[in-house]
Amino acid sequence: MDNNWPLWEVFIRSKKGLSHKHVGSLHAADADMAIENARDVYTRRMEGESIWVVESKDIVASNPSQQEELYDPAKDKIYRHPTFYDIPDEIGHM
């Protein structure tokens, strides 16, 4: 029997305007506790100002064994990168 609390994945947004980034996981009995634990474990050095948690079992992941069929076809489509345009000097960095 598994006596552990469920596992939760933690996402932290470091500041406004950026997106939440996965920072790790932790154990908690429910969502409220997961938020509090995340606050205590992952934001004690001012890492962020917003927390998302989601139970690890609710994450749907792509299948590693399908690596080739999913990602290889993008390798020879270099025209999808916007690198063929001349950017006028006045625009500066884009």
Binding site: L26, A28, R44
Partner: peptide, 11 residues
């Protein structure tokens, strides 16, 4: 009792 609560109390 668990790592998460250990850190909470230490905080």
């Amino acid at each position: 009792p668990i790592l998460e609560q250990d850190i909470a109390l230490t905080n």
